[in-house]
Structures are given as structure tokens and as C-alpha cells.
Design a protein around this nucleic acid. Structure first.
Lengths: 257, 257
DNA sequence: ATGCCGGAGTTAACGGTGTTTGCTAACATT
DNA sequence: AATGTTAGCAAACACCGTTAACTCCGGCAT
């Protein structure tokens, strides 16, 4: 590498005049164009189809130029991960607009369905976020961004249950029966999700259980391994959703559409 | 391709003398050596580390020679998938030796734990079987073998519940409340798992629910995405296992070890 | 206005990959 | 012994990630 000048885009571009940003704007535009093309190729051809040379070719450039923007191919993928996590978070919170603040059940239903709908509408992106990771590739500066957005997603997702927990409607398991190892794992989970110290062990236990079930349900549908053909399995999702919600004291409602 | 002579190994080698098999034995040996090296590389370096050139180099051959055995790299991976499915099936049934035939609870517990233990001991293999698939790679003659073994695994897995169902201990959901779409999906699931026509809709509903939960639990642990550090999450698995088993009327028992 | 510096982009190169084509040489069969 | 089959080879094509050295031009300070 020439220098270590793969600066990250600021994200919050100051609305200054034109003197400085001229250069910066072009750089920002290049960033977004690279990522847009990378995403399209990811969707069309899977993770293997994302190659620096192909992206550069499509932009009318040569591959080494991209190293001005990303430290490596893996770094680009990490940057995409960060974007996807942010998009998923926004998608879920957006699904709650229109649902009244007091309708806790409705908000939870909408959020869980939104998670699934985003995953189905963005299968390749979902696979990149939640699929198996190859062992420790040469990472880059965007690794922490991906981690940060991932944590932010986990946090916003789990916060959905806060109102529910406050209302004491969830039948909490007897935390006295938890093994010490389980408690330690639950604490670690809370830490990695950015909600450390805010919940009791019983609450964490319920949160993880819900998350695991939702994750499994959606993974099975998105990766569509060994089960069900190409057509969607919404009925099973809804049925499982009802069962899952019953375990947290939320009464199921069928989707509106 | 020169010809279409990528014959599959017979598997059941006839114990004939030496005239014919001389050639066939060498071929069989080459097959297994290729797959052994491929698996080692898969484990050590992930799916990306499996390359025909590297395998050939390691065998003291050149890459094109491997096309005498596999139609493509993807075909080799499919062949590995078939082997892994068979190994996983055997691993699960082996876990039941030593558990008396009448101890239905014990057999189920042992089987579910065996699924997890195989996945943890063979993370890369598990990811190949149950991880996301890239869209329609150029497949090969081993595709149907992989599919067949996958079905066989699904069948053996779901058959575990047969005794349980016969004893009518599982509280079945009211199948009258199922939507027609759900019933259709359940039938399709049974068909793709090779157990079509053998169970009622209520039973299929319970089977899929169990499978989805186990799948999600193990996927989350193996792909270790966004949750938990490197250390194992057995306590959570056992806790979820207890909860899952309770839903099918099986009383939980802690592992022996 | 001049000079300079740094960033964006280039070409060339190294080593790696899947895959195809045509060939040789050993084997099996007749 | 002549035949046909088959495993393996070398060469080639088209890709890939990554590095190094170089050019060029815009923005900045003198």
C-alpha cells in the first residue's frame, strides 16, 4: 500500500460551500458508486461475484484505483455489512411508524415481520450479515464500522422488548434454576448486544430465546436448505410467530395485508 | 470436456478377484484421496480454500486431471455435501447405541445433542451443508447424490419423533385452525423430507417447529454471528433444549458427561 | 502567478484460480 | 499383436487480489 490514506467517509457531510468539499464530494460519490455496484453484483451473482476488478471495469476504472477507497476486498464487504445493518435497523423502525406508541403488541409484531420481510427482499445481503463467516480474512478499517452497526442493530432489536418487560406481562423463568455458566453467557450476550446491565437474567433468557427462534426461522427460509421449495413459507412463519409471541404473553394478530 | 466419463464411484465394490477392479480400485482410491484433501482444506481454510489446483498440487498431479473425477469444483463440493450428510446421519444414529430402545426420551435427547456436537466438531462442514447457497452454480453429476443424502438425513432425523408420536404424548395443535396454505407447506415439507403421507398435519407442524428451533440454535452457535464470543454456548443450548422438549411432552435430563 | 504537495488514477507485474483443448502413454480387451 | 479406453499432462484462456512504481492534476501556500 502506498500510504494509509483509506479514510472513511464522514457520513455527516457538513453543508459548507464548495471550497473543500469539491474533492470530498467526488470521493463520497465514488464510495457510494463502488458500494452500489458491489451490492448489485452481490445480489445478482452471490458473494463470489463481488470482485474488485469487475467493479472497477464497470466504473471505467482499473482495479488498483479502488484501493484508494478500501483496504481490500474484504474491507469493502465489511463496509457493505455496516450499511446493511443500518438499513435493516431503519427498515424495522420504519415498520413501526403508523403503529401507535401504546400498542406494544402491534409494534413487536410489525418489527418481527419487518425483520423477515427485509431478509426475504434482500437474501444475499442477509446471508452476508448472518451467514457463516470465513476464518479471519485480512480485515480493514471498516471492520469496526460493521461491528458498530451490528451492535446498533442488536440494540434496537432487543429494545423492542423493553416496553413488554416493563409491563411485566412476560412470564419470566425462574432465574434461580439457571446454572452459573448460563448466567455468564447471558451477561456476555447482553454485553455484545450493547444492552449490558439493563436486564435481569430472566429477561435476558427470554430475549435470547426469542432472538434464536426468529433467527432460525428466517435463516431456514432465506438459505432454503433442505426444506420447502422456492415458494415462500409465510404460513409457517406466522404460525411459529404466534407460538413465539404466546411465550412472551403477546396475543397474536394476523397480518393486515 | 473430453467426454462425459465422470462416473460416480459405485460405493458397494464387488469383492471380485482382480481383473476388472484393478483399475476401479485405483479410481476409487483417487476419489477418496481427493475428497480427503478437499475436506482438510475446507476445515483449515474455509470454503474458499478448496481449489482444484491446490488439491492437485498436493497430490502431485495437475489440476485438469481432477476433471476425470469431478465435473467441476462445485461438483466436488456437492460430493462432499453428500458425504457429510451421510456422516451426520450416522453420527446421530450412533449416538443412540447404548440408549435402550424403550427410552424414547433418552434417544431423542441423545440425537438432538448429537446434531449439535457434530456441528460444533465440524463447523466448516456444517456451514457447507446448512449455510447459504450461492445462486445456481454449474452443478454436476453429484448434485443428485447430495440431494439424496440430504433427504435421507431429514428422514432419519424426523423419524426420531415417530415413537413419540405413537405414544400420543405430544400435545398436538388443533389442525382445524391451520390455514390451507400452512397445510400445503407442511405437505411439501414432508415430501422434501421423504416422509410424505405418513403424518397428520398437526404432527408435521410439531416436527417442523422442533427442527426450526434446533436449526436456529445450532446455526447461531456455529456461525457465531453477533452473539457470544468464541466460547461455547452449551448452557443456552441445554436451556433451549429443555424448553423445546417440554413442548413435545418430553421431560429434560441434563447430559451425563 | 508560481511552486509544490498530496491524492486519484494509471500500467506492469506476481501469484493464484477454474476450465478447455489436444496430446501422450499406459492400461485392458480382443 | 492390434485395438480401444482412460488417466494424466502441458499449454492456453480468462479471470481474480494485491503490490509497486509512476503520472497527472487540483488545491494550497508562498
Amino acid at each position: 500500500m502506498h500510504k494509509d490514506t483509506t479514510d472513511l467517509p464522514t457520513g455527516n457531510a457538513p453543508p459548507a460551500a464548495s471550497p473543500q468539499p469539491r474533492r470530498a464530494r467526488l470521493r463520497e460519490a465514488a464510495f457510494t458508486e463502488i458500494k452500489a455496484i458491489a451490492r448489485r453484483r452481490l445480489v445478482e451473482q452471490g458473494a463470489e461475484g463481488v470482485s474488485l476488478r469487475a467493479i472497477a471495469r464497470e466504473m471505467g476504472m482499473t482495479a488498483p484505483a479502488l484501493y484508494r477507497y478500501f483496504a481490500s476486498l474484504n474491507d469493502l464487504l465489511l463496509s457493505l455489512q455496516a450499511d446493511f445493518f443500518a438499513e435493516l435497523s431503519a427498515w424495522i423502525t420504519d415498520a413501526n411508524t403508523g403503529v401507535p406508541e401504546e400498542d406494544v403488541d402491534g409494534r413487536l409484531l410489525a418489527s418481527l415481520r419487518a425483520f423477515r420481510s427485509w431478509a426475504l427482499a434482500n437474501r444475499a445481503e442477509f446471508a452476508l450479515l448472518f451467514g457463516p463467516r470465513p476464518p479471519h480474512q485480512p480485515s480493514g478499517p471498516h471492520e469496526e464500522a460493521a461491528l458498530r452497526e451490528g451492535q446498533r442493530f442488536a440494540s434496537t432489536f432487543l429494545t423492542l422488548f423493553n416496553r413488554l418487560l416493563e409491563e411485566d406481562r412476560i412470564p419470566l423463568p425462574d432465574s434461580g434454576s439457571f446454572t452459573p455458566e448460563l448466567c455468564r453467557q447471558l451477561e456476555q450476550f447482553a454485553r455484545s448486544a450493547g444492552i449490558a446491565g439493563r436486564h435481569s437474567e430472566g429477561e435476558l433468557r427470554v430475549l435470547t430465546a426469542c432472538w434464536v427462534r426468529l433467527y432460525g426461522l428466517v435463516c431456514m427460509e432465506v438459505f432454503h436448505n433442505m426444506v420447502f421449495g422456492p415458494d415462500d413459507m409465510e404460513p409457517l412463519f406466522e404460525a411459529e410467530l404466534a407460538d413465539l409471541l404466546a411465550s412472551v404473553g403477546v396475543r397474536y394478530r394476523p397480518p393486515e395485508g
